[in-house]
Design a protein around this nucleic acid. Structure first.
Length: 426
RNA sequence: GGAGAAGUACCCAAGAGGCUCAAGGGGCUCCCCUGCUAAGGGAGUAGUAUGGAUAAAACCGUAGCGAGGGUUCGAAUCCCUCCUUCUCCGCCA
């Protein structure tokens, strides 16, 4: 959630930044609502003071044996007015919160406006592998070696599901092990969160209400369709991790919190499939290790660099060819002020595919879920939250099998994974 | 899943419709005495959110006793719904 004070004091600037994300916001309406809210509060507070004062006289006068019926009559009238005002305040506040909370985060000032077309490649790592033979795509390779069972995945659970098996499962697990041990070595805390989360997590991370229909909801007849009473399967561990300290006030000395989690991620992905995205590029369930940092407000830039560096280093250690891109404002997700994508080369598709997305939400998520810390000056501030995949294994595996395939059809296992797989070649 | 009990500030805890706009301890902070791993005395300690005022403060309000509603002139206190924790029972990997 954007700071409402910023909207009120610098509307032109907010409007311009939002426009870069392709969002045309009616800030005048927000200002009007806030104006209304404040005048109601002033009036309501005045009346409450009157009522409190008058009411306090009742026992005093009663003790003196005096008649209190007109005080009671008067406070009763005041009370009725207060009730009306309070009702209106909460209605106006709800309207205001709704209006502000649907706004996406402000992009950082250095971001280009517009969408994907304005993304900028910052750095390319390694080189495209050249094949002296005609290379297979990962679907063919995984099927041939029995790494992935696509048909039976569909049989068990419908399209968009697959089964890792045999050496495929071992390779997937080796990737997870590799990532976990790298993060542990960097001093990150390993978190295994619940996979079904309450509504508040979706709101706090900024994914709801917008993406409410793109997650799987867990049936609960008692909730009678009220999603705020239902649980959903997390679409990324970020949804759990950024809410870990929701509602709490941390000590500044406890920051930054460096966390990572492994979870399967569940997505309905109600959208169009492109035929090129077959195999494991886009599915309803995939594995991901997610990194999150929760930092003091003035420390998130350095945390961002750290996360980008970590994500790059993981792909680099796997020996894959990839590139780092800075996303234009409109391509960053709604909650994020800035995002860099790490895209790995998928030879069969001839394109780079995202395996990690590192973002700084600044205080956008913290405002939604009220995660704060006490600064050195004794004041409470909102933390900054950052997240980055480290990495999405289900997208790394196709890149590995494709980039490491040999003329004889075998696949070489990247050096760093061998101690986890126990084999060098598939 | 069923039955009971409980949730008050950093912690413990009193509190049962108005002499409580939350007592008393502990802890913590400061001060005094002492003089050096002790003991004693005193003061402070509701953070926070929100509104007004201000250059900014000081300041003046409002809200706040698990959460949300309700009753009442007035609610920590009475009523309803929900959440969480504990105890017991049942079921289960």
């Amino acid at each position: 959630m954007i700071d409402i004070k910023l909207i009120l004091t610098q509307p032109e600037k907010v409007k311009e930044l939002l426009a870069r994300k392709g969002c045309d916001a009616d800030l005048g309406r927000i200002a009007a609502l806030d104006e209304r809210r404040r005048s109601l509060i002033v009036r309501g507070d005045e009346l409450k003071k009157q009522r409190n004062d008058a009411s306090a006289q009742v026992p005093v006068l009663k003790k003196q044996g005096k008649d209190v019926s007109d005080i009671i009559a008067r406070t009763k009238a005041i009370g009725a007015e207060i009730a009306d005002i309070d009702k209106e305040i909460s209605a106006v506040e709800k309207e205001l919160t709704d209006a502000v909370s649907v706004l996406p985060n402000l992009p950082d000032e250095d971001l280009e406006g517009g969408g994907k077309e304005n993304n900028k490649v910052l750095k390319v790592f390694g080189e495209k592998p050249e094949f002296a033979f005609s290379p297979l795509d990962h679907v063919a390779l995984c099927t041939k070696h029995g790494l992935i069972d696509y048909e039976r995945g569909v049989k068990l659970s419908g399209s968009g599901h697959w089964i890792y098996r045999g050496k495929g499962a071992v390779l997937e697990w080796a990737l997870l092990n590799f990532f976990v041990s790298e993060h542990l070595a960097d001093g990150y805390e390993f978190i295994l969160p619940p996979l079904a989360l309450g509504y508040g997590c979706g709101y706090g991370s900024g994914q709801f209400p917008k993406f409410r229909d793109e997650v799987y909801w867990v049936e609960n007849p008692e909730a009678e369709g009220d999603r705020t009473k239902m649980k959903f399967m997390l679409p990324t561990a970020e949804t759990a991790l950024v809410n870990l300290y929701a509602g709490e006030v941390m000590k500044e000395s406890e920051l930054p919190k460096k966390l990572f989690a492994y979870t399967p991620c569940f997505r309905k992905e109600a959208g169009s499939y492109r035929s090129e995205e077959r195999g494991m590029i886009r599915g309803h369930q995939f594995n991901k290790v997610e990194m999150v940092q929760i930092t003091a407000a003035d420390k998130s830039d350095e945390a961002f660099e750290e996360l980008v560096g970590k994500a790059c280093s993981l792909v680099e250690k796997l020996g894959l060819h990839f590139r780092l891109s800075k996303l234009a404002a409109g391509d960053c997700s709604a909650s994020m002020a800035r995002t860099y994508d790490i895209e790995v080369w998928i030879p069969s598709m001839g394109i780079y595919k995202e395996v990690s997305s590192v973002s700084n939400a600044r205080d956008y998520q913290a405002r939604r879920n009220s995660t704060r810390y006490k600064g050195a000056d004794g004041k409470n501030r909102f933390v900054h939250t950052l997240n980055g995949s480290g990495l999405a294994t289900s997208r790394v595996l196709p890149a590995i099998v494709e980039q490491y395939q040999q003329a004889d059809g075998s696949i070489v296992v990247p050096e760093v994974l061998r101690k986890y797989t126990g084999f060098d070649v598939i």
